[in-house]
Nucleic acid binder design. Sequence first.
DNA 1: CGCATTATTGAAATACTTCAAATACGGTGG
DNA 2: CCACCGTATTTGAAGTATTTCAATAATGCG
Lengths: 243, 243
Amino acid sequence: MDMTDCAACPLRQCDLFTPFSDDELDFMAHFKSGELTVTKGTTILMEGSNSGQLFTILKGMAIRYKLLEDGSRQVINFAMPGDFLGLQAGVMGEMQHSVEAASDMTLCVFRREALWDVFRSHPSRAFDLTWISAVEEHFLGETIATLGQRDGLQRVSWALTRLFMRLRAVGLGTRKSVPLPFRQQDMADALGLSLVHTNKTLAELRQQKIATWSKGVLEVHDFDKLRSTGLVDENREAKRPLL
Amino acid sequence: MDMTDCAACPLRQCDLFTPFSDDELDFMAHFKSGELTVTKGTTILMEGSNSGQLFTILKGMAIRYKLLEDGSRQVINFAMPGDFLGLQAGVMGEMQHSVEAASDMTLCVFRREALWDVFRSHPSRAFDLTWISAVEEHFLGETIATLGQRDGLQRVSWALTRLFMRLRAVGLGTRKSVPLPFRQQDMADALGLSLVHTNKTLAELRQQKIATWSKGVLEVHDFDKLRSTGLVDENREAKRPLL
DNA sequence: CGCATTATTGAAATACTTCAAATACGGTGG
DNA sequence: CCACCGTATTTGAAGTATTTCAATAATGCG
């Protein structure tokens, strides 16, 4: 099988993540049951379903979202390489949101039953799982603060700043640009803004030579301006575990 | 010491929570290091701090919030009896939000080091911790959807519905009313609305004889109307673990 | 009783939405 | 390689929910 060896996993190199011990590495290789390749548009996990699998994103990006009763869609966040998918169904028995591939993707697949083994036999990795969950909570809290307290320009700047920082941290793009394969509609649904307003706000950032997002690529011309407009604080992201 | 025995803990009776096995009960009693009583207004946990303690709320309610760079405040959510506080600092090493008592409270206190014991020696309880974290994530996702997609009346109705359901589930209040010791400003900061608009929206719910929130008590006159206005679906809350 | 905090109400200002239509883009088949 | 079609982006203009400003009334605490 043409499967990336965990030992050779490029994500391990990113200093966004805490390093693996040899033991942990062994276990991950055992935990891993395969690799999945999906094309843009594929639904990876479905709200209400109880997938038998858990994933870590190796390549590509995805959209986590909820559909509301009235047909509108809320994008919860954007998932990137290194992100873990399916933990909710793993512990609660049911996904609370759907996940759709925004680009072609490669995913590391774990059997759900293996989750029990983690808790029974690898307490430090179980701890890491909870850690990952706590990190997720932290970002959701920040999102709530953004939707609740910031205006359109601040929201868009916040989102672009965070995406840029995260993508750079996993080694994507160049010094001032990163791939960003979403539609403006996705961004609008993430920020609770209308498509039209999102578009006009992006136009303003472009016109002010702060950032340009076009054809799937985000170019940041003035990072500090973008960051301060989005009210994102300067200090670097804390390390977190990778599964 | 005048401390509630875990075996006698009234929260265990609520069918919102999964039942305890005798083993689990034993462990919890061991895990518990004391009880804390605080008065309204006390800051229990502080953003950026690394508290040595974890808590389960036994009595009273609290506000989880973040202060933003520009001075505004976002209330992340309201914490009620049965909620677990401090897990973020426990695993990530630092709180990402503050927690302040909205009424006089009684808290069950756990030593932070005990968290390690849980993962090392009690895998099923460790699993529950992750479960609790996943439940938290679920609610934050729902909050994001509310702030992003719903208008003022829907937001207020959503919040009152959830609070009412949750408080009833932990045995508080009567059939149609529950204690709700927050200020309108707290609700406004939670929903991303101005105080004035929140007030006018509450006035409308009152005038329409749907719900009245006054002097720390929420009376729900037409639950189904409130629920449907807030676009909350009918199915009952899934059980979750209690720590 | 008096003071500080919280709730209430009216009116003006505005950020954002909705509607509508034009333009650009990307992929497909001829 | 070009023509075509569906999807995504862009722009203008009118409408509206919500904010902000400002002032009064009620509540609760020492």
